[in-house]
């Protein structure tokens, strides 16, 4: 069944393999099984200048059959403390995954955008109010130590399966 979504995902897959050297904060972006291009996983690396440093954050990516007319569904599998990520479900509040989606985005550019969201949180549309409130009060020390604590607690295991 060579439908439009499979042809496009195959193209993205080949491009991702070719560009792998150009993504410092994306350790991995690949289909979970070679023969199913509609279910992917990714691992984001916490950047050195943030409370996420040293953390590895696993994402679950589901491609709808209507992709790229509809966006992929992406959530964190690794527990993460971030104002725009739901602490329990891993749901991500990012406009390009919802109302601002357009087919010009790719899995790769979306993962880069999520990685960028980690260091540039948006406390005005929170899914995690505790983290957002610290930011809104300007309590950067409190915010960073909370982020660091959860990163050490959940994102630094050798084996996260």
């Amino acid at each position: 069944m060579s439908t439009a979504v499979h042809r496009r995902m195959l193209k993205e897959y080949l491009a991702i393999q070719k560009n792998s050297a150009t993504r410092p904060h994306l350790e991995l972006l690949e289909p979970i099984q070679e023969d199913d291009l509609l279910h992917w996983q990714a691992i984001l690396l916490g950047t050195a200048d943030s409370g996420y440093e040293g953390g590895r954050f696993r994402l679950d990516i589901v491609i709808p059959t209507s992709y790229p007319i509809q966006p992929p569904t992406i959530r964190f599998l690794t527990t993460i403390c971030h104002p725009n990520v739901h602490f329990k479900t891993g749901e991500i509040c990012l406009d390009i995954l919802k109302s601002e989606w357009t087919p010009s985005w790719t899995l790769e550019s979306v993962c880069v955008a999520i990685s960028s969201l980690l260091t540039n949180p948006e406390p005005s549309s929170p899914l995690n109010c505790d983290a957002a409130n610290l930011l809104r009060c300007g309590d950067m020390a409190g915010y960073n130590s909370l982020v660091k604590m959860y990163t050490a607690l959940y994102a630094m295991d050798e084996d996260q399966e």
């Binding site: 995954l97 601002e100 550019s109 955008a113 960028s116 540039n120 948006e122 549309s125 109010c129």
Partner: peptide, 23 residues
């Protein structure tokens, strides 16, 4: 994507003092 990191702003213009984490 480096320039487009705007989270979803569904309730950005509701200027309420209370913004509960409903979930």
């Amino acid at each position: 994507p480096y320039k487009a990191r705007r989270p979803n702003n569904n309730n950005a213009n509701s200027n309420s003092r209370f913004n509960p984490d409903l979930s």
